[in-house]
Design a protein around this nucleic acid. Structure first.
Lengths: 209, 209
DNA sequence: TGTACATCAGTGAACGCGCGTTCACTGATGTAC
DNA sequence: TGTACATCAGTGAACGCGCGTTCACTGATGTAC
């Protein structure tokens, strides 16, 4: 089976340190460009330039453009899912968990680039099954973590109701990114919205309804 | 001032019927392509082909590609804003207004293409000020309409609180589009989510909190 | 430590393609008298 | 109704460009003995 293939790095992950560093640099460059200019303006030649290599060398690590995009997405979402896990370990008193979870999410969302990055991803997921799958895995982790928090605070909710309310809360949080920075109405100051959001979260964590 | 410019249709809107029909056809074609393939794959040549004209003739009506995108967006959002107005005229008993408003929004969102279209727009708005402005105007109309509904049902809310809650509800509704079709988790059946959403809307329309 | 060899990393030129737009031109339609 | 003219609508060829990817090749690094 050892055919005389063109020199290309196949197994997906570089074995040697230099290769691993290069692959990271490529994903870093592509991520920055995706956020700065959007997927429509993203080109392999720009990625190569930003990563400090020649255009033809990209294919040595990533045979096609879509492999780069999938790669950067998987890396990002993996890290984010890990953050959920890590946060789950250091649990404070149950009563404060919802609040702290919201804090973490809002802090992350406030980090400028997150919204732009996700807007691109939502659009991409509609056209690419691999990206849709990765996004789905991410939101599943996000959602499971929140279900756990809600049930920890208010066990009487019951799992089915907690699952639905967690989904609603995530939808609200994601939807709120539209009202940040650009693209939607900005006449409502965010601090007010976030205060209201916390009240909403409190209501969703109650066993009423 | 009457210089010998190249033959180009300048004023933005065609005067004669034939020209108006052509412009509509161009926007129709571009909208369909944007939904089917996404902005990254959108090209003037594809638009021309789908509209049944030669590539060079596009520039007669729309000097540049971005004019087409802005044109289709403005047309769509104008129609949607009008729909809000029309709906506001036929008001039933106050108590049912929130419910009916939700019905209308959810029905619209269920219409397959709406989500894909908006995902593209959110991403585009982050790069193009004209698109961001149009989106902002649309969400403002949407939001004002909902504030009116909430205040009509529960005047005791007061305008500031009604404004914040309307924004939250819109964020939730937009965020829920992520859980439809593709791109996010689909393990939660939508009917359940929508039932929960109605309860949430009811809570937001109460004067508690 | 030295040598031989295999694998890994990187280069530079070139490919064919679809893109957005321009331009000189022709044909169709409307308007004035 | 007929004619002259202006404006509107549409064509087809061509432009220069950046794109994604291939390919033959060279240089660098690791491995076995």
């Amino acid at each position: 089976m050892t055919t005389g293939k063109p020199p290309r790095h196949r197994p997906g992950t570089a074995v040697l340190p230099k290769g691993r560093v290069r692959m990271e640099a490529i994903l870093d460059a592509a991520t920055a460009l995706l956020i700065d200019e959007g997927y429509a303006q993203l080109s392999t030649r720009k990625i190569a330039a930003r990563a400090g290599i020649r255009p033809g060398h990209l294919q040595y690590y990533y045979p096609a453009k879509q492999d780069i995009v999938r790669g950067l997405l998987e890396r990002y979402l993996e890290r984010a899912s890990l953050a959920f896990e890590r946060e789950a370990e250091a649990t404070p008193a149950a009563e404060r968990r919802v609040e702290l979870f919201l804090d973490a999410v809002l802090r992350d969302q406030r980090e400028g680039d997150r919204a732009r990055f996700f807007w691109e991803l939502w659009a991409l997921a509609a056209r690419d099954d691999a990206i849709a799958g990765a996004m789905q895995a991410f939101y599943r982790a996000y959602w499971r973590r929140l279900v756990g928090v809600l049930l920890g605070v208010r066990p009487a909710l019951g799992r089915p109701r907690a699952e639905r309310r967690a989904a609603l809360l995530i939808a609200t949080l994601e939807g709120l990114t539209l009202f940040r920075s650009r693209g939607a109405g900005r006449e409502l100051p965010l601090p007010f919205l976030e205060r209201e959001l916390r009240e909403l979260a409190g209501a969703l964590a109650s066993d009423a309804g």
